[in-house]
Simulated scan of single mutants.
Amino acid sequence: MNQTSRWRKSSYSGNQTNCVEVGRAGDGTAVRDTKNRAAGYFTASREQWSAFVAAIKGGKFDA
């Protein structure tokens, strides 16, 4: 696994544990489950992460 740093979760999460955290991994982003940090994480390149965030902001995943 890559070295990761600066893990953080959304301020909208408050004290909830059912959320994810993101951190830096090389020149990309790492994502892990807040309630099971020991399970590891997955990474996305900068381009993949930007496309994912744009899709969220564009409502692609709205129910």
Rank of each mutant, 00 (worst) to 15 (best):
T4V: 12
K60Q: 10
D62R: 15
D62M: 14
K57E: 07
R24M: 08
A30C: 06
A51M: 10
W7L: 00
R46T: 00
R6I: 00
S5G: 05
T29N: 04
K9Y: 09
D27V: 02
W49D: 02
D33A: 12
T17A: 03
M1A: 07
Y12W: 14
A55H: 11
V31P: 01
D33N: 09
S50K: 10
A54V: 14
A39S: 08
G28F: 02
Q48R: 07
T43I: 12
K57Q: 15
E47C: 01
V22C: 10
R6N: 04
T17I: 05
R37Q: 12
R8L: 09
K60H: 14
V22G: 01
Q48W: 05
N15I: 02
S11G: 11
N15S: 11
Y12E: 06
R46V: 00
S50G: 09
A38D: 12
S50H: 12
K35W: 08
R32S: 05
V31S: 01
D33R: 08
R37V: 08
C19P: 00
T34A: 14
C19R: 05
G58S: 15
D27I: 03
D27S: 10
T17V: 07
G26Y: 14
N36E: 09
S10R: 00
M1F: 07
A38R: 11
M1E: 03
R37D: 01
G26I: 10
S45G: 02
I56G: 02
R8Q: 04
G23P: 11
N2S: 08
S13C: 14
E47R: 09
S11R: 11
A39Y: 02
V53T: 13
V31R: 01
S11L: 11
A54S: 15
Y12T: 07
G58A: 15
G14W: 06
S11W: 06
V22P: 02
Q3T: 12
K35C: 05
Q3K: 14
I56K: 00
A51Y: 01
N36C: 12
R46L: 05
A25V: 01
S50E: 11
R6A: 08
F52C: 03
A55D: 14
F61S: 01
A54Q: 15
T34H: 15
R24I: 08
W49S: 05
F42A: 06
